[in-house]
């Protein structure tokens, strides 16, 4: 299989690697870039565990070819606590016990961050819609919804 260069910004850091042509962004991140925060739960775009943000938009990395991300700015949960300070979403999930096994959590956080980046003061319905592509099997949706709303409140308090 032909190897091709790919270059993008991962959590603010310039990255350039050779990958096999046709590699998904999920595999490029996990196997080549050493960022295992996106998870492969289904590899077919149905569970949301692989969710990342590409140029500000929520994307399923298991259905995104890495080559299509050339020059893009990619965000993952691994880069969210830059400088050791937790993002309000991370803090709210911890405070609200909004994770159990944790496998869906990095993808869930990315889906919630994409929401808050666009809609700083979401309604409960906005939150439900935003995480509707992310499957949690430990039955944590209510605590997750509450955590996202709490994070939005703490964001707006900080901004105010």
């Amino acid at each position: 299989m032909a190897r091709v260069p790919v270059q993008f910004t991962l959590n603010g850091e310039e990255r350039a690697e050779f990958i096999e042509s046709g590699t998904t962004l999920l595999h490029a991140l996990r196997d080549t870039m050493g960022d295992t925060s996106p998870k492969g739960g289904c590899q077919q775009g149905t569970c949301g565990a692989c969710s990342v943000i590409v140029d500000g938009e929520l994307r399923l990395s298991c259905l995104t070819l890495a080559q299509t991300c050339e020059g893009a700015a990619i965000e993952t949960t691994a880069g969210l606590a830059a400088g050791g300070v937790l993002h309000p979403l991370q803090r709210a999930i911890m405070d609200g016990f909004a994770a159990q096994c944790g496998f869906c959590t990095p993808g869930m956080i990315m889906a919630a961050k994409a929401l808050l980046d666009h809609t700083p003061n979401p309604t409960r319905e906005d939150v439900i819609e935003a995480i509707s592509g992310n499957v949690c099997r430990c039955t944590g949706y209510e605590p997750i919804i509450a955590a996202v709303l709490a994070a939005a409140r703490s964001n707006s308090q900080n901004a105010g």
Partner: peptide, 16 residues
């Protein structure tokens, strides 16, 4: 939880 929310928790498939 700190590992879960930062993506640092190691699941078996996170090893290469």
């Amino acid at each position: 939880l700190p590992g879960h929310v930062t993506g640092k928790t190691n699941y078996f498939a996170d090893r290469t």
